[in-house]
């Protein structure tokens, strides 16, 4: 995959927003890949977490925002506790989700969940899912 990186592709505002919402310095990432190696969801992601870090660092907003990776992340923190640079990747993923959710766009629509599924689910599934995937 060839990626063009130039001052034209660098979205400074996007980088600043992710820094601000996550409160994390993801520029420290040294691309070791420990996060991707330990991620239980990696096979379902289109872009591995390690690449999300470098793409965000380079301000490639469209690639990061259109990726489904942040939506597949279940915030299990396996990456965060192993990161040798001490980056809480789950906070970076949260920031990436928030950039979409804060535009009032839902990933999961509560009213579209069937009554059968609603009736079977434990409350914590609903609460955590709505917290992570609705605006």
């Amino acid at each position: 995959m060839t990626i063009e990186i130039s001052d034209k592709t660098y979205d400074e505002e996007f980088v600043k927003k992710v820094e601000e919402i996550s409160g994390e310095n993801f520029h420290k990432c040294m691309q070791c890949g420990t996060c991707s190696g330990g991620c239980p969801m990696i096979e379902h992601m289109d872009i591995p977490p390690r690449q999300i870090m470098i793409l965000t660092h380079f301000g490639l907003k469209d690639k990061v925002i259109s990726s489904k990776t942040a939506w597949i992340c279940a915030t299990c923190n396996a990456c965060s506790v192993r990161c040798p640079r001490g980056i809480e990747l789950t906070k970076v993923m949260e920031a990436i989700r928030q950039l979409t959710l804060r535009k009032n766009i839902n990933y999961v629509e509560p009213s579209a969940i069937s009554e059968e599924i609603m009736a079977g689910l434990p409350q914590i599934a609903l609460v955590s899912c709505f917290r992570k995937h609705t605006s």
């Binding site: 609903l126 917290r131 609705t134």
Partner: peptide, 9 residues
């Protein structure tokens, strides 16, 4: 819960 899933928000 079925009628008002938004409770969980």
């Amino acid at each position: 819960y079925k009628k008002y899933p938004e409770l969980f928000r």
